[in-house]
Design a protein around this nucleic acid. Structure first.
Length: 526
RNA sequence: GCGCCCGUAGCUCAACAGGAUAGAGCGUUGGACUUCGAAUCCAAAGGUUGCGGGUUCAAGUCCCGCCGGGCGCACCA
């Protein structure tokens, strides 16, 4: 059984080559070339070795490639390109399960964690899509992932929410406040007897239910919702105890020396009114995370939280956390309407909720658009465009690949070809016999692309960047549509038909797998 | 003022710890359905990667300085 991807195997062979010569250098994974004429993978290792071995890159590339014959290496200007032979791809696809780079790791993925003071907006949507996709990817790479939502149900904002329910204050306004007020009125007639905080807390629970519904509609299920209030009651004291060598009192507030860990200034954990800050409670929350013993603490935050990373890192180090702490920052979503940028404002009523977006463009398209962009890039979400051109959206291009192959198989069934095909496939598996048609360039390329998919997943996982998979799927779809247009799948010749059906099926499976990692559906008809 | 991110085709964006002739989609122009789904395909046009220096075999990518945009810089969350 194959446990390594083709890229990993190439890397291994190169490492062998270097070991024989006693050269120590980190061998990078082979990459996917920009231009498809260079094959499916390439490595630039010869350039890196040139100064060490005191030979020209070309010479080195030639030498290394003798170790890599099975992958059909082609040396061009010092690069080693691989046009992966069908026999290799075939053997790989039929036996490979999935990457193992996070095998056995316990991962806590905390994301969205929106304030329960209002509905989710389109910015949350992006974080939700990214967090969900990365959780899928990590799971696929062998991790045990727990998705978690942290409920900010403590602090001043909850009091302000309570005030808003009473009809006071300027912070929270809008129809949803009125709706929540109506719901609470059913149980509590008189608001004057209840504190702002308790009323706000009650309201936040109602709003949280709506948030959960939206997330569920968006296809995201959290294993756990952790309440800030509860975790603070349970662990704030312990957290303070752990921090005791690093805190001091000033102006009757308690500060943590985060500057010792590279922060710009020390941060308040307990305010002068003796209430904890958000950060104070967050220390308690992260202590809770540490106690649950994860290998990786992963979280997706909006880019406006970037200044917060050092703070949490400081606490984690004080508390002796040994695992990895990974924060994925996702840039803001800028709403474009009528060709103009709209400032998101609750007061101005220009607040576009995630629900509204989903109504307009649908769950799959929304996710796909969110995930086409690299997380570092601010996203211009043109709502008119997304509506108007929903059928030209790239998501349909990829989904169409899947639907098309499904339809192809329905047609094959009509023609009574499927049982013969299944037998042919069994033979392919057991006898490791390849078909001549696989060696034609388009067929070879499609099979190779399918196998290289797993290398792409690994990159995506290492970089915590789901957009890698999105663009891979687009290029696979493009290759398939082109193939389909040019070549008839169901022909009079059985061997040709079956091998082309097989390739189509592989493309379908990879497309489905890739889409599922993104959280996007793979419809059988469209 | 300080910190983080961004600036790539008319528009929206790709390009993995620097690699080859910087790629897609939309839009524009022209072609392909009596044939497995044309939500598709083929082709053309479109670029001094914001500007100026530097590092090196090689820079969209790294360093320095500008210019432009976003976001932070609370005893808010």
């Amino acid at each position: 059984m194959n446990q390594k991807t083709i890229g990993e195997r190439i890397k291994e062979k190169i490492e062998e080559f270097l070991k024989d010569r006693n050269i120590k250098i980190d061998v990078p994974n082979p990459e996917r070339p920009k231009n498809e004429k260079y094959g499916e993978l390439f490595t630039d290792i010869a350039f890196k070795l040139s100064p060490l071995m005191k030979k020209s890159p070309l010479q080195i590339a030639e030498e290394i490639s003798t170790y890599l014959k099975e992958f059909n290496p082609q040396v061009v200007n010092g690069f080693i390109n691989f046009k992966i032979p069908s026999s290799v791809s075939l053997n790989f696809i039929l036996n490979y399960e999935r990457p193992k780079i996070l095998e056995g790791k316990r991962v806590l993925a905390e994301f969205v964690s929106a304030n329960p003071t209002g509905p989710l907006h389109i910015g949350h949507g992006r974080i939700a899509a990214v967090g969900n996709a990365l959780s899928h990817i990590a799971e696929f790479c062998g991790a045990e992932v727990e998705r978690e939502f942290y409920i900010n149900d403590a602090g001043e904002q909850i009091e302000k929410l309570g005030k808003a329910i009473k009809g006071e204050g300027e912070e929270y306004k809008g129809k949803y406040i009125e709706d929540v007020r109506e719901k609470i009125r059913e149980k509590i007639k008189d608001f004057s007897s209840i504190s702002d905080y308790e009323l706000g807390f009650t309201a936040s629970r109602i709003i949280l239910e709506d948030i959960k519904k939206t997330l569920e509609r968006f296809g995201i299920t959290f294993k756990r919702f952790v309440s800030e209030r509860e975790v603070s009651e349970k662990l704030l004291k312990t957290a303070l105890e752990i921090m005791k060598d690093y805190i001091y009192e000033k102006d009757s507030a308690i500060f943590l020396r985060t500057t010792q860990f590279g922060d710009e200034k020390d941060r308040v954990v307990i305010k002068s009114d003796k209430k904890p800050t958000y950060f104070g409670n967050d220390c308690a929350y992260h202590l809770d995370k540490i106690k649950r013993k994860y290998d990786i603490l992963f979280q997706v935050w909006g880019a406006d939280h970037h200044g917060y990373i050092k703070r949490i890192e400081s606490f984690l180090r004080i508390a002796g956390f040994q695992g990895e702490f990974i924060v994925k920052l996702v840039q803001m979503v800028n709403l474009i309407k009528g060709g103009k940028s709209v400032q998101m404002s609750k007061r101005e009523g220009t607040y576009i909720t995630l629900e509204e977006l989903l109504d307009e463009v649908g769950e799959d398209a929304a996710k796909f658009i969110y995930l086409t962009r690299n997380c570092d890039t601010p996203l211009d979400f043109d709502i008119d465009m997304a509506k108007k051109k929903s059928f030209e959206n790239p998501v349909y291009y990829v989904q169409y690949t899947h639907a098309r192959v499904c339809s192809l198989f329905r047609e094959a069934e009509n023609r009574k070809m499927l049982s013969g095909y299944e037998k042919w496939k069994e033979k392919l598996k057991s006898e490791k016999k390849t078909s001549n048609t696989f060696d034609e360039e388009e067929e070879r390329n499609l099979l190779a692309l399918c196998s290289v998919f797993y290398d792409e997943v690994i990159v995506s996982c290492k970089l915590w960047e789901p957009s890698r998979i999105t663009s891979f799927l687009l290029s696979l779809a493009s290759a398939f549509h082109s193939f389909y247009q040019r070549k008839r799948i169901l022909t009079d010749d059985e061997e040709t038909s079956f091998s082309r059906l097989f390739i189509s099926e592989m493309v379908k499976e990879i497309t489905k797998k890739g889409l599922s990692l993104l959280g996007v559906s793979a419809p059988e008809r469209m």
